[in-house]
């Protein structure tokens, strides 16, 4: 394909990405580096701040007064000004530790329920993005389902990376920052859910992709012709080939000094599959051990017989 066509494809996917994904990397990085002025996220780093902030998890708009009041309480109470940016090297990482024994029953299940409802919403966003990939909706409908079933968790893990730094992650559309130590303080096996995503995310962020690079990379992941059970692989591979060309060109133009970035990115696709396999096994374990846990029907559909 002509370079002009490949650039047009990159632009189209970037526009779709901006349309369907509410929190871009650009916005998340601005929040994480404290460049958003007075709008700072509420920090959840222990049970007390969780109790204060839990009602706002998954809120699209946290009430300003409440939010600011609580934010300053957290900031003053712990001598944290602003939020723990990746470069700050603050002692923030230790704030959430040592509370494992105090965890009230049910907190993990409530958090997991919130995580599920945001994930189901995110699956819808990814589906709309997939439908915007030229040629996707012309594929066999069963193959579209298979591509989403196998691709969507990989996409969601990639999309979490820009929201993370080594100390924690933004949630609730960037309005709450939940610390990595807090996740680690939850009871087993919930404490094991996020750590692999942090490890992946922190490494992934060193590649310094921007939102326009991400849009192409996500499309490449969705268009994987080797998913089990695909009926008609050829047209999927052809679509992926074009997006791969577009991604390669995009990276050359956008990151001229980053050596082997394209190859490094493709390598990440292999790492992702292992993370998804482990994630699915963890959810299956939860299904067996947590009698009170309800699994969202959409997530159930995706996870069932996946790996």
């Amino acid at each position: 394909p002509e370079a002009a066509d490949l650039r047009a494809l990159a632009r189209h996917l970037y526009e779709a990405y901006l349309k369907y994904f509410p929190l871009t990397k650009a916005k998340a990085r601005a929040i994480l580096s404290g460049k958003t002025g007075e709008k700072v996220p509420f920090i959840i780093h222990d049970m007390k701040s969780l109790i204060e902030g839990e009602q706002f998890i998954n809120c699209k708009q946290i009430p300003v007064l409440e939010h600011q009041k609580q934010m300053s309480a957290v900031a003053v109470g712990h001598g944290v000004s602003g939020i723990p940016a990746a470069h700050s090297g603050s002692d923030f990482g230790s704030l959430g530790s040592g509370i494992g024994g105090m965890t009230p029953d049910g907190v993990e299940l409530r958090l997991f329920k919130s995580y599920q409802s945001r994930s189901a919403e995110a699956v819808r966003e990814v589906t709309e993005f997939a439908k915007s990939i030229p040629g996707f909706i012309d594929l066999d409908l069963n193959d579209q389902v298979t591509l989403l079933k196998y691709g969507v968790i990989e996409v969601l893990i990639i999309m979490m990376s820009p929201l993370m730094n080594k100390d924690g992650t933004l949630i609730s559309y960037g309005q709450i920052f939940m610390t990595r130590e807090f996740f680690k303080s939850l009871r087993k096996p919930f404490c094991q859910m996020m750590e692999p995503k942090f490890e992946f995310g922190v490494k992934f962020n060193t590649l310094e992709l921007d939102d326009s690079d991400m849009a192409l990379f996500l499309a490449v992941i969705i268009l994987s012709g080797d998913r089990p059970g695909l009926l008609n692989v050829k047209p999927i591979e052809q679509l992926q080939e074009t997006v791969l060309h577009s991604l390669e060109l995009q990276l050359k133009l956008n990151h001229p000094d980053s050596l082997q970035l394209f190859a490094k990115l493709l390598q990440k696709m292999t790492d992702l599959r292992q993370i998804v396999t482990d994630h699915v096994h963890l959810i299956e374990l939860l299904k067996k051990t947590e009698v009170d846990m309800l699994l969202h029907p959409l997530l159930q559909e995706i996870i069932k017989d996946l790996y």
């Binding site: 189901a120 919403e121 699956v123 819808r124 589906t127 709309e128 439908k131 909706i137 409908l141 069963n142 579209q144 389902v145 989403l148 079933k149 969202h296 029907p297 959409l298 559909e301 995706i302 069932k304």
Partner: peptide, 20 residues
């Protein structure tokens, strides 16, 4: 098809978040 009912729905129409 029955196994992936919601995914089918999402692919065929724009489902609003409330429907999920």
């Amino acid at each position: 098809k029955e196994k992936h009912k919601i995914l089918h729905q999402l692919l065929q129409n724009s489902t609003s978040p409330g429907d999920l």
